[in-house]
Design a protein around this nucleic acid. Structure first.
Lengths: 159, 159
DNA sequence: CAAATCGTTCAAAAAATAATGAACAAACCG
DNA sequence: CGGTTTGTTCATTATTTTTTGAACGATTTG
């Protein structure tokens, strides 16, 4: 049942494993996306685990993550009750999904947090001026980030 | 020798620890930057390790990383032989340094890699057309990334 | 120059993260 | 129904990453 990867598959998967590293995703997620990206046919969980030689749990979990931000989409295959998947190849969709699902939640500091920081700074007796300047700067950074994200998404025109 | 963090310091450090998580930097690096960011005075290694209650090794290593991409700069204090540091607060400098030092090296695939992929795809007998299309797409993504990065850096106008 | 201070390095330990696979539930099949 | 097949979950295991702190070299000080 143990399949083997072509050289092309290996190389492509390697590219996505590196990307996964940069994006804070686990290796197996990169492997899965790479495999599907270079696969002419949709694959089911069993295909994936055999090809990549990873466990069923990792495969199921990895595909779940990829689905969560739309990097992978389910494909219905008539007369087969297994779930098949193929790679989403529209960069824009993937990046949008990734930012919304994986990045934004981690930055959910938002207003309350900043307000709290500001009041703490204002409450300090010494160095109050310096502290307030810093919090202001933090606010400015936050604004920059909030502006840049949609802007960057828009930058990706074609798919 | 064990110092304690004010509530303001704690909160600010927490913000940067979260950021560190998103950016794939270790917790202690986030702590160090946060501490320096909210410190009105430059701090030396000993100040940092005492305030944050982390080891000398972590402190030295963490400051090294922060220096490597210009998030922290050395400050000369006359008559003191210890090394003092303060946080760089120009967002643009930090982001530029971070991208150049921490992100780009990991994406150093570049031309040779793509050429290799293309020749592998071209060498395949079956599905050659599909494979070539995918490699082309990968190339297009790479191009997008290479365009976006400088563009994003430029987006950060003020400091 | 001996003692003290400072910062770095790196092997070992600790902690955090990811992968495994058995147990399970759901859907199908005869 | 009872037996398969399929996919998910989650406690345990394995791996990777991070931290620690002792050892060290370099510099300063008395």
């Amino acid at each position: 049942m143990q399949s083997t990867l072509s050289e092309l598959e290996q190389e492509v998967i390697d590219v996505f494993v590196r990307m996964a590293g940069v994006l804070n995703l686990q290796r197996s997620v990169g492997e899965l996306y790479g495999l599907l990206f270079i696969s002419p046919e949709p694959l089911c969980i069993n295909d994936c685990m055999n090809k990549l030689n990873i466990s069923k749990g990792s495969t199921s979990q990895g595909l779940k993550i990829l689905r969560s931000f739309g990097a992978v989409k389910p494909v219905y295959i008539p007369g087969d009750r297994r779930d098949f998947f193929e790679a989403e190849s529209a960069l824009r969709k993937i990046v949008t999904g990734f930012v919304n699902e994986q990045v934004r939640p981690h930055l959910e500091n938002g207003k309350e947090r900043m307000a709290r920081l500001e009041s703490l700074a204002a409450a300090s007796s010494d160095e109050q001026e310096f502290f307030l300047e810093r919090i202001k700067r933090l606010r400015s950074w936050q604004k920059h980030a909030n502006l840049l994200l949609p802007f960057a998404l828009n930058f990706i025109k074609s798919d």
